[in-house]
Structures are given as C-alpha cells and as structure tokens.
C-alpha cells in the first residue's frame, strides 16, 4: 500500500479541521476527493505535504510504510510526494530553470544519484514541456511571475512531469481553468499515469473527472470522508448536489 491514512485529526490555530480521516491509496490508482467548500479538502492535501501551520493531533499517515510525521516537507517531496497547488506561488527572481534544476538535483542526491549535467537537464525540460503541451518559453521566466491562471496550472503539471512523483496530490488544479487548459492538465495526468504511481485529485466539480477517470471517489464533509464509491459517485453528486450529502449528516 502506498498511502494509508488512519483516523487523522488536524487543526489550525486550535480549530479542528480534519476530524478522523481514513484513506487508503494503492499504486496505479486514481482517487478523487470531492466535497463542498471549507470541508477540509485542501487541509488534507497540505497535511500530507507537511505544511507546518497545521497540527496533527491524532491518527497517522503511512507512506510506503513510513510514518510521514517524522519527515520534513522536503523529505516527503524527495520520497515522491508532489502537491499541485491550488494557488501556485509567484517567486520573482528565481527562474524556472534554476528552480527545477535545484529541485531535480536535490531529489537525485537524496536517492543517491549523480546530478544531471546542464545538457541532460535541458533535454529533460524540453521532453517534459512537450509532454504537457507547453510551447511558450516559460522556463526562463521567474517562477509563476506574471503567469496567467491557466499557465500557472500547466506549470504545476510541468513540474509534476519533471519530478516524476510516486504520489501526486492535485489540489483543485481544475479551478479557474477554461476547457482547453483543463484538457491539457488532464492529458498530463493521463500520460504520466503508470502502474507504479498514484494520483489523488481534489476537485469541487465533476467536470475534471470527465477527463481523468478515477478508480475511487470520496466525499469529504465536515472533516470526515462520509461516502466512498466508484466513478459513478461523482455523477450522482453532480446530479443531486452536495445538499444531498449535507442532509444525510
């Protein structure tokens, strides 16, 4: 099992957001996590990635049988966890090239591999750009600075392609995207999918799931997973709306 979350409770500034999450993800699977706004979807993603403003008060997260709580943010990333941000951060003055080269080589170092040469690295950048259908020269620009909403999300998928994670969590990557950008993001995920990795796709709408077919759909409500099912659950949610879930709880 790749990821095993058991009875996870987490709070921010004393306010409990996650109130006992259980989730299991195996390699080769795509999980979708849906739910109304403010129910803890992004918190769950941040807690797995290790953002320290959240405090885990109970429960555990095992990743490849390792207790994630003992690992720093960067160690989790080097172990293969990738978070696609809902709001990618602009970092003026740090070029995409330096950013990605530093990241790729730090991850390689962690895994006992030699750093990529400049030539190898450039070649890799070009391949991955093609894979995620980036034609513009965003690589020489500062990280996300002045990128449009769509460019930022594509850039997340590009970084995912560069870092080849084992577990990718995409936090509302579809929000604010037009249909073309959505298709590019979904294509990126579908192309990067292998039997050796897994995706957790967090989304508010069913729309993205027309392009990325999940194996499992979970509904998060008030800090708990209240319903799990196959891809048909997403359609049911689309039809009945989240009020249906709210009424049941």
């Amino acid at each position: 099992m790749l990821l095993k979350i058991t009875n996870l409770h987490a709070s921010i500034k004393g306010k409990e957001i996650l109130k006992g999450i259980d989730l299991e993800v195996n390699k080769g699977e795509i999980h979708a996590i849906m739910g109304p706004n403010g129910t803890g979807k992004s918190t769950l993603a941040s807690v797995i990635a290790g953002k320290d403003e959240f405090e885990v008060t109970e429960g555990e997260i095992l990743y490849n049988a390792k207790n994630l709580m003992t690992l720093s943010v960067e160690e989790r990333a080097r172990e293969g966890i990738f978070l696609g941000f809902q709001y990618p951060v602009e970092i003026p003055g740090v070029s995409m090239t330096n950013f990605m080269r530093t990241a790729v080589n730090e991850i390689r170092k962690y895994r006992g591999l030699d750093p990529l040469s400049a030539g190898e690295f450039l070649k890799m950048m070009e391949e991955k750009k093609k894979l995620v259908e980036i034609t513009s020269n965003l690589t020489n620009r500062s990280v996300n600075e002045g990128f449009s909403g769509g460019e930022k999300k594509r850039n997340e998928i590009f970084q995912m392609a560069m870092l080849e994670p084992t577990l990718a969590i995409l936090d509302e990557t579809d929000s604010g995207l037009d249909i073309d950008a959505l298709r590019v993001v979904a294509n990126g995920v579908n192309k990067l999918r292998t039997p050796e990795n897994a995706f957790v796709v967090i989304t508010h709408y069913q729309r993205l799931l027309e392009y990325i077919i999940p194996d499992f759909v979970h509904v998060l409500f008030e800090g708990r997973i209240v319903k799990s099912g196959g891809k048909e659950l997403a359609l049911e949610l689309e039809e009945k709306g989240y009020d249906w879930i709210k009424q049941q709880h």
Partner: peptide, 8 residues
C-alpha cells in the same frame, strides 16, 4: 513551502 515541496 512551495520550494521545499519540490524537494529543495
């Protein structure tokens, strides 16, 4: 956080 999440 963004940089560290990428393994830096």
């Amino acid at each position: 956080f963004y940089l560290r999440q990428r393994g830096i």
